[in-house]
Simulated scan of single mutants.
Amino acid sequence: MSANIHPTALVAPGAVLADDVSVGPYCVIGEHTVIGPGTRLFSHVVIEGRCEIGAGNSIYPFAMLGGPPQHTAYKGEDTRLVIGDNNIIREHATMNIGTAAGGGVTYVGSDGFYMIESHVGHDCKVGDNVILTKQATLGGHCQIGDFVIVGGLAAVHQYTRVGRHAMIGGLAAVVKDVIPYGSVWGNHAHLEGLNLVGLKRRGFSRETINTMRAAYRLLFADEGTFQERLDDTVETYSDCAEVMEIIDFIRAEAGRPLCLPEREV
């Protein structure tokens, strides 16, 4: 089988399209594009820059992939956007290539769902099974773990980390790192607790969830200093991999402060 390209589409000579790629009406594909098998571009999709797209993706009208970084320091350096497999990228979604200063690659994992007008900024590292709902925005250099959900119209500040299985509520302005399994809400976002709905949907056992809840209450209690509570949590729950994932995330000491509860837990 060969790629199925609509006669109105413009595909640059250097582009590499695998077998059974489908390119719909009025799509524009640049010369540095590589598209894996089974990926479908419905219509009016624009792919430019150095863009590598995996297999089985569905890309809807007016999506713009591989555009230049929205960064004043970008001067046309040879950087990339890499997208994995089996993603759904809906209308008007945008994903930008990286910057030289940020490592040169924007990476989007597999099995994600990127809804209408969602945006992945330059140099982001986005995991698998991520959902960006309508008009959700990731600033540059964000690190988004697997199974994260970002609610509608929420914005994640540049350089912010969001741990695996976290939930960001709609309209949230996230300017601080979000722990794995956490649930945040508000402007500016604060930690509401654990993402219990997500944990249950993904098959975490009742015992594990109860252990995580107990560890959360200890970690974010009012008594003692945060470092003392961190040490106590490690001592008490070191045999729970999920709790230790939260601890390791906190200890990583990235550039952004930690998103904390607004009220007592």
Rank of each mutant, 00 (worst) to 15 (best):
M1C: 09
M1H: 12
S2Y: 06
S2R: 11
A3E: 08
H6M: 06
P7E: 13
P7K: 12
P7I: 06
T8G: 05
V11A: 08
G14C: 02
L17P: 01
A18K: 01
A18M: 01
S22H: 05
V23N: 00
Y26C: 07
C27I: 05
V28E: 11
E31D: 14
P37N: 11
G38W: 06
F42H: 13
F42P: 00
H44K: 00
I47H: 02
G49W: 09
R50C: 03
E52K: 03
I53V: 10
G54Q: 04
G54A: 10
I59T: 03
I59A: 09
I59K: 03
Y60L: 15
A63D: 03
M64T: 12
G67L: 14
P68E: 15
P69W: 13
H71A: 13
T72F: 15
E77P: 01
L81Q: 01
V82M: 04
I83T: 02
G84V: 05
I89K: 02
H92F: 15
I97M: 12
I97H: 01
G98Y: 07
G98P: 02
A101N: 01
G103S: 10
V108Q: 05
S110M: 08
G112F: 09
E117W: 09
S118T: 11
S118C: 13
S118Y: 12
S118Q: 07
H122K: 05
D123A: 11
K125P: 00
D128I: 03
L132N: 03
L132I: 02
Q135W: 10
A136F: 10
A136P: 00
T137K: 01
L138P: 03
G139W: 11
C142Y: 05
G145Y: 09
D146A: 07
F147G: 00
V148C: 07
V148G: 05
L153R: 02
A154F: 11
A155N: 08
V156P: 06
H157Y: 12
T160P: 04
V162Y: 07
R164H: 14
H165R: 07
A166V: 02
M167D: 03
A172K: 04
V175G: 04
D177L: 12
D177W: 11
V178Q: 07
I179Y: 13
I179D: 02
I179G: 01
I179K: 00
P180I: 04
Y181P: 01
V184I: 11
W185D: 15
H188R: 15
A189D: 02
A189L: 04
A189Y: 11
H190G: 10
H190C: 08
H190T: 14
N195R: 10
L199Q: 10
F204G: 01
F204N: 06
F204I: 02
I209A: 09
I209F: 12
N210L: 15
N210K: 14
T211A: 14
M212Y: 08
M212V: 04
Y216T: 03
Y216M: 11
Y216P: 00
Y216F: 15
R217Y: 00
L218Y: 00
L219I: 04
L219Q: 02
F220A: 04
E223Y: 07
E223T: 12
G224N: 05
T225V: 04
F226S: 09
Q227P: 00
L230W: 06
L230R: 12
D231C: 01
D232M: 14
V234A: 05
T236E: 14
S238M: 07
C240I: 02
E242V: 09
V243F: 10
I247C: 04
F249Q: 04
A254Q: 12
A254R: 13
P257H: 13
C259E: 10
R263T: 14
V265F: 13
V265R: 08
